[in-house]
Design a binder for these strands. Sequence first.
DNA 1: GTCTATATAATGATAGAC
DNA 2: GTCTATCATTATATAGAC
Lengths: 196, 196
Amino acid sequence: MPHNGHRTGRRNQIQAAAEQLFREKGYLATSMRDIADEMHMKGGGSLYAHIKGKEDLLWDIAQEAVRAFFSALEPILAKDISPDQKLREAMIAHVLVITSHLGATAVYFDEWRHLGDVRRAEFMQHRERYERLFQRLIHESVESGALNVRDERLATIYVLGSLNAIRRWYKPGGRLSAQKLAEAVADLALNGLHQP
Amino acid sequence: MPHNGHRTGRRNQIQAAAEQLFREKGYLATSMRDIADEMHMKGGGSLYAHIKGKEDLLWDIAQEAVRAFFSALEPILAKDISPDQKLREAMIAHVLVITSHLGATAVYFDEWRHLGDVRRAEFMQHRERYERLFQRLIHESVESGALNVRDERLATIYVLGSLNAIRRWYKPGGRLSAQKLAEAVADLALNGLHQP
DNA sequence: GTCTATATAATGATAGAC
DNA sequence: GTCTATCATTATATAGAC
């Protein structure tokens, strides 16, 4: 019983192939035949035994990225540590989600605009909710006296933008481990918030 | 005499329309008919009296962005001020190029990958050359003792990535002027480089 | 320079044999 | 589930009238 909500092994392979192609070439530049090629299928038609359409792939990948970001953030928010410690851990976790989900986060950052209107609106709500959680961490860090920023909204946008940039140049297997890189980038962004 | 290197007024209007559409919808999602609509023409065919093809528009816009970035940076490099002063001015100028060329810089950051192989390679060389100029400014700032970073390469990538993020959320006519915003973002990024 | 009509290619998706 | 063949649509680009 295909495309009824169940997720077969084959279906996940297709989604993984789509992720990589969407990241490399972009959603619109990736044809169903491209995805079929990656699956060693001989024509795009075979894919429709597993999915309802191309946009469903985009949607599922976007949702996977949303899940990954929230799954990384929520346990940190629940910890019993100071707000600024939470903020630093959240920033590191955010970068690690990107480095470990390069395909899905490419959709999360760039390709989501090709979703249909309804899904795009729902997706944007998730992104905004995630952003507010970060802004709250910054707000609480300021209240606790650990952080001193003039404009909390600007600080939030700046921090997330700075962290997100890593997806443009990170390549697995580089001289720095993902963990070390995440810490380095998070500290660069965090230091920026400590005004001299 | 159309598309022979000369730039008529009409041709510039087309390029401006294409810039805006490429930014809003992306290069592939923008059809020649979309551009013609924006020009109040009744069919995509009329455009070909002014341009050779769609990719030429992308190329010219990419070159315009390259020119804008170098034109902003070079006079700062030629100034008789300290390296760290140059760096700060260069960062502010970089942000101002983005905020004042949102369409062209959208191509510079996102849509350039749809260029053909030859042009894409040439474009990447320009980008790398620009990045090296920034890295040199950071290197000289470290040498002069004004800056203290552990990893100059990482610092360069981080700073440019942080500045570039502004293009995702900047909207003209907001509560902060572009100049004030550029200074605020540049200082956030610059503070990050001053390790505690 | 713009219009209309059209050539050509590629795309997402479907149908039916196996 | 995968294959082949194919449909309908849309895209870039061209040709020729005005």
